[in-house]
Amino acid sequence: MKQIDQQQVQRLKEQAREVRRQIIAMLGQAGSGHTGGSLGAADIVTALYFWEMNIDPQKPDWEDRDRFVLSKGHAAPLLYAVLAERGYFPSDRLQTLRKLGSPLQGHPDRSKLAGVEASTGSLGQGISWAVGMALAAKMDHKDYRVYTLLGDGELEEGMVWEAAMAAAHYRLDNLVAFIDFNGLQIDGPVEQVLSPLPIPAKFAAFGWEVLQIDGNDIRQILEALNCARLVKGKPTAIVARTIKGKGCSFIENKVEWHGVAPKGEEIARALAELNM
């Protein structure tokens, strides 16, 4: 259980803001990629890497490290920005996102970039990786923890619920799954496309501890992470209400900003808003 003080919260907020700036710059340079879902989850992933997780960027293969799996792999720019900021690789590499030969693939590729724990991009598969990692920790009597982040649309994949069942069955209290509950997927609002609601009740029914927070509020994220450490005998799902595109007013909550990168004026405008 870690002490949460206002100064730390402030520092993490600033860090998340920097991560968002990097996301915009990177996507602007790449000319394609997933803007909305990267910006929206920036607070969660920043909190994990800059506060919660026991990691050493100098030793990405350290066997006792905590693990993070980006199950919603299309938010790769977010993961890359955080890894660079945390010191896994020099941030000038962010400029190579999605370019031929770059280790920064359109979706995370663990064979190309140190720090990426699982190759994701096919929705629904990342949570199964995370369950496997948590199982390995139990087998080896290690106390590292495993974190994963899923999209709310991603919950429509049956595989997610197969993994959820397995995690509860094997009492994986070393596993925490964030659900990025932004209400949107590609074809529209999740409730119109194929409703995965109610999310908390589903995870509870599957045998998970469930916490509900505002996923763009750093303090609430830290408090939830602290709570999850107290849960014994079952995995924890943190259903995090977020605003897709958070931080850039013209991107926020717009379904059409799922899979396009900002261009020209848009880049300048987004960066200006993030500098305010």
């Binding site: 649309g153 429509e156 590609i186 074809d187 194929l194």
Partner: peptide, 24 residues
Amino acid sequence: DLSKSTKTADFAKQFPERFINAGI
């Protein structure tokens, strides 16, 4: 959930009663 990319969205618009989005 990829109807804009696969271009089935045009059909969905014209014949909503004969289009089913399976979600992801």
